[in-house]
């Protein structure tokens, strides 16, 4: 291999291999070099390291050829622990579209949550979008039947407003009120939507002697997005609200999936008069699939399987996604370094 040939072959090599070569020849300094300087450095050391450079180039070429040939005769070698073929794009996109319209039947966990509320407090920790609102609405309906008032709190004003509109549609605007930092509509209604801060203030007022009539008849407090308990700035408000919540009212904590719902449930059981029932599951009502979209427009599955891997340790990237992402990383690494 002449010098010119070698230089051209080096330019073809992926940056990753070039760096490895450069590091072997010029030491850790090579890690900070751009592609052009790396090639220059490697060529400067070519006399002494000719064999090594050539070997690296040949190995890479052989790998390229093997890749181009596809999973050829090499595959059967691993026959005893045969791996399933990675999913393809067709499998990923299969079944896309609108499901058959089905009459609404509440899930078991939803029924369970509503019924458990008869006996005590309830924490619902389920993935986003699996129908926590159903539990809230159903629980509200039951409380209304018993002539109890209901308070629904959410962390954001925007969410409160959305819920207000939603509850107005279900229960009628005369039964629903909203109180936020800057809005007060129908504050004497039996169903009140508010931000958590407002409820905390109400509870303080009640404890301070300025008795708010509603708190005596308060039957249900729904705290949405209760994972906000861990918010560095506002988390304390959630805790205050839960601690000072009147004991005759039931608590319904709705939260996205969190890591330690049992701990929360145990805590509630320890401070509230009734035991706390925990409803949790990881099952999504609409299954999720993951894809990888390369900037050139190529779409592949992200994982080897179409279904989501159950844990990070079992997550195996789809070979194509892995190849494309590595390619992308090399490209951006290179532009960033020379730029």
């Amino acid at each position: 291999m002449t010098r010119d040939e070698m230089e051209r072959a080096l330019a073809e090599l992926p940056f990753r291999l070039l760096r490895r070569l450069g590091r072997a020849i010029a030491g850790p300094l090579a890690l900070r070099m751009g592609k052009r300087r790396l090639i220059h450095t490697i060529m400067a050391g070519a006399e002494a390291n000719g064999a090594r450079i050539e070997a690296a180039i040949r190995t890479h070429e052989a790998e390229e050829r093997a890749l181009a040939a596809g999973p050829g005769p090499a595959a059967p070698a691993s026959a005893e622990h045969r791996v399933e073929r990675p999913a393809d794009l067709r499998a990923l996109l299969e079944g896309i579209g609108v499901p058959e319209p089905r009459p609404f039947v509440p899930d078991d966990w939803q029924v369970e949550a509503v019924e458990a509320l008869e006996r005590g407090d309830v924490i619902v920790s389920v993935p986003t979008g699996s129908g926590k609102t159903y539990v809230a609405v159903e629980a509200t309906r039951r409380a209304m039947h018993e002539d109890r008032t209901v308070v629904y709190t959410s962390p954001l004003k925007a969410l409160s407003n959305t819920k207000y509109t939603e509850f107005c549609k279900i229960f009628g605007p005369e039964l629903v009120g909203i109180i936020t930092g800057d809005r007060r509509d129908n504050p004497a209604a039996p169903i009140l939507i508010m931000t958590t801060e407002i409820l905390r203030n109400l509870l303080y007022d009640a404890a301070g002697g300025e008795i708010d009539v509603r708190l005596d008849t308060l039957g249900l407090v729904i705290i949405d997005e209760s994972q906000f308990l861990a918010d560095p700035e506002r988390g304390v408000v959630w805790e205050e609200t839960i601690i000072f919540c009147p004991s005759q009212a039931r608590l319904l904590l709705l939260s996205a999936s969190i890591g330690n719902p049992q701990e929360l449930a145990a805590w509630l059981s320890s401070i509230r008069p009734t035991p706390c029932h925990l409803v949790r599951h990881q099952h999504r009502s609409v299954p999720l699939r993951a894809g990888y979209l390369h900037p050139n427009g190529k779409l592949t599955p992200l994982f080897r399987t179409v279904a989501m891997p159950p844990s990070p340790s079992q997550a195996v990237l789809h070979p194509e996604a892995k190849r494309l992402f590595t390619m992308f990383e090399e490209d951006t690494l290179y532009t960033r370094r020379s730029g």
Partner: peptide, 23 residues
């Protein structure tokens, strides 16, 4: 990430939801 991917898939309107990663 769970919060983001939770937005994928509308109940009653989609039979599958997708989380697409683009680098």
């Amino acid at each position: 990430v769970a919060q983001i991917s939770g937005r994928a898939g509308r109940r009653g309107k989609d039979s599958v939801g997708f989380a697409i990663v683009t680098p």
